[in-house]
Amino acid sequence: MSRILGVAAWFAGLLFFAPVAWMVLTSLHSEPDAATNPPSLAAPVTFDSYAEFFDSEPWPPLINSLSASVGSTVLVLLLAIPAAYALSIKKVEKWSDVLFFFLSTKMLPVVAGLLPIYLVAQYTGMLDNISFLVVLYTSMNLPIAVWLMRSFLAEVPGEILEAAALDGAGLVTTLRRVVAPVAMPGIAATSLICFIFSWNELLFARVLTGVVAGTAPVYLTGFVTSQGLFLAKVCAAAVVVSLPVLVAGFAAQDKLVQGLSLGAVK
């Protein structure tokens, strides 16, 4: 019985992984080999599609995505950590109402605010500007980050804070010696989640950017052509664009769980 369940787990793992493996394999085949039926698994490996991908000027969109993701993640942390402090360690009155206000903004569909946001960008000349995306991605991830950081900071033992205060430790010493060690894993989980969600975002980027500030997901959607074979090229592009998320996510699997559950799971 237990052996059968182990085999079942392996089977499920391979089944879920198959499309990813197929994406990588297809990206390593020539276009004609990628478009055969039945599939040619053992076709010769070639890096032509990757060469073609990197010849097609992919760096501006990749760098745009990187700036938007890193920029918004830094901004999110700068805003979320003090806010989480005021919702956990030195609590403001009605802190749980504030917390729920943040979460409720995640439930309003972004698409409903798209038009005014577009018009603001148009009137202020911020269309096709990466800093505008940074602001939007910050607002998109801030509620998640506040929830996550709060759940981590709530773990700071109150007794130790009291003891530190009795010993005459100042705010900076308390933050550095007592709060920071507990906050660090939270900051890591928050950064990972914010980075992934910003890197993946398509709707805002598609509506608000053009040739200058287009991000990698937007670039990907333009990679499908109506003529000729493009399967290997699309797969190569998909692999390259997904690689940062795959690497970060695999490297920090436990942080991924913490982040996705808003810190409810540690």
């Binding site: 879920f16 890197w199 990907l220 998909a238 699997q253």
Partner: peptide, 22 residues
């Protein structure tokens, strides 16, 4: 476990393109 997590870590547009075309 690592293999099972992989689908979530593929960029959504890339995943959609993968399913549609490949």
């Amino acid at each position: 476990r690592t293999m099972l997590i992989a689908p979530f870590l593929v960029v959504p547009v890339a995943a959609a393109l993968l399913w549609k075309h490949a």
